[in-house]
Simulated scan of single mutants.
Amino acid sequence: MELLETVTQYLNDNELVLATAESCTAGLIVSELARVPGSGQTIDCGLAVYSPEAKNRYLSVSFDTIERYGLTSEETSRAMALGAIDNNNADVAIANTGVAGPGAPDDIPVGTVCFAWAFRHQAQLYVYTRTHRFSGERNEVRLAAAHHALELVPKLHREVLEGKAPPV
Rank of each mutant, 00 (worst) to 15 (best):
V30R: 12
A93M: 06
Y58L: 15
A144G: 03
R142L: 03
A26E: 01
V113E: 02
V110T: 05
A48S: 14
V160I: 13
L161N: 07
R130T: 15
F119M: 06
I94N: 01
M1F: 08
I29N: 03
R138H: 10
W117Q: 08
A118S: 08
P105Q: 04
A104N: 11
P102L: 03
T97A: 03
F63C: 05
E75K: 15
L33S: 14
Q124L: 15
Y58W: 12
G111I: 04
S51V: 07
G103E: 04
V61T: 04
V99A: 02
Y69G: 04
D64P: 05
L152F: 13
L59F: 04
A48K: 03
D91K: 06
D13H: 14
E2W: 05
E22G: 09
I85E: 02
Y69L: 05
V160L: 11
A100R: 01
S23P: 04
V153N: 08
L143W: 00
A100T: 03
V127A: 08
E75Y: 11
A54V: 02
I66Y: 10
G38C: 07
H148I: 09
S73R: 10
K164M: 10
S77A: 14
L47T: 09
G163Q: 05
E53F: 03
G101C: 04
A19R: 04
Q9S: 10
L28K: 15
G98V: 03
I94Q: 00
A48T: 06
A118F: 07
A116Q: 02
T112W: 02
Q9K: 14
G46C: 07
A100W: 00
P154K: 12
G101M: 00
E67S: 15
H147D: 11
P102H: 05
P37R: 05
T25M: 02
H121Q: 10
F115T: 00
Y10S: 07
G98Q: 00
F134P: 12
P105G: 10
V17M: 09
N139R: 11
P37T: 13
A118W: 00
L125F: 12
L156H: 12
Y58H: 06
L143R: 13
N88P: 06
R120Y: 05
A21V: 11
A79E: 07
T25A: 09
D107N: 14
R138F: 05
P37M: 11
A149F: 09
Y10C: 13
P166Q: 09
D44I: 07
E32A: 15
L59P: 07
G40D: 02
S77K: 10
P37N: 10
L59D: 10
N96M: 10
T76Q: 00
S39R: 08
R68D: 03
T8G: 06
T76R: 03
L59M: 15
E162F: 05
R35P: 04
E75A: 14
P102Q: 11
V99L: 09
T65G: 05
A165H: 05
E74Y: 00
D107C: 01
H121M: 12
G98L: 09
Q124M: 15
L150A: 12
Q122R: 14
V160N: 01
D91R: 04
S39G: 12
L18D: 02
N87Y: 00
N56D: 13
T97N: 00
L143S: 07
V49Q: 00
A21P: 09
M80H: 02
P109G: 11
C45E: 11
